[in-house]
């Protein structure tokens, strides 16, 4: 049962990935539009978890379809025992969003 679920997940995940590649990395949801395709994003600091340079919300639950074995150049997860809750450390990025708050003035303070 478990194996079957996993196989199904991998299969559909791969199919979805192909669709996403075909779409040229365009977002499926409004939030967190990927701007950088497969480019690596700089980490917050050395040792911080890598950020996700593509839409993570739309590919929810299928991370391992690519990242387990490095399909299409995707980075392979270096921590195989922690593969079941990717999105609690790795988050997507909408690079069109500016720092918060947008303007910082004395009046705002």
């Amino acid at each position: 049962m478990m194996v079957k679920t996993l196989k199904t997940t991998v299969f559909f995940g791969t199919v979805l990935f192909c669709v996403l590649v075909a779409l040229g990395g365009r977002a499926l949801s409004e939030q967190a539009t990927p701007q950088q395709g497969s480019k690596k994003l700089p980490r917050a600091y050395e040792g911080a978890p890598p950020l996700i340079p593509h839409d993570a919300e739309a590919r929810k639950g299928v991370c391992l379809a690519c990242h387990e074995f490095g399909v299409a150049g995707a980075p392979i997860v270096p921590h195989p025992t922690r593969n079941h809750f990717c999105l609690q450390c790795h988050v997507g990025q909408d690079l069109s969003v500016k720092a918060f708050p947008a303007v910082s003035t004395e009046e705002d303070k």
Partner: peptide, 15 residues
């Protein structure tokens, strides 16, 4: 958390 750029860019607004 909104002052941390990575977090703000992950979820920039409440939908």
């Amino acid at each position: 958390t909104r002052r941390v750029l990575e977090l703000h860019r992950a979820v920039p607004f409440a939908a």
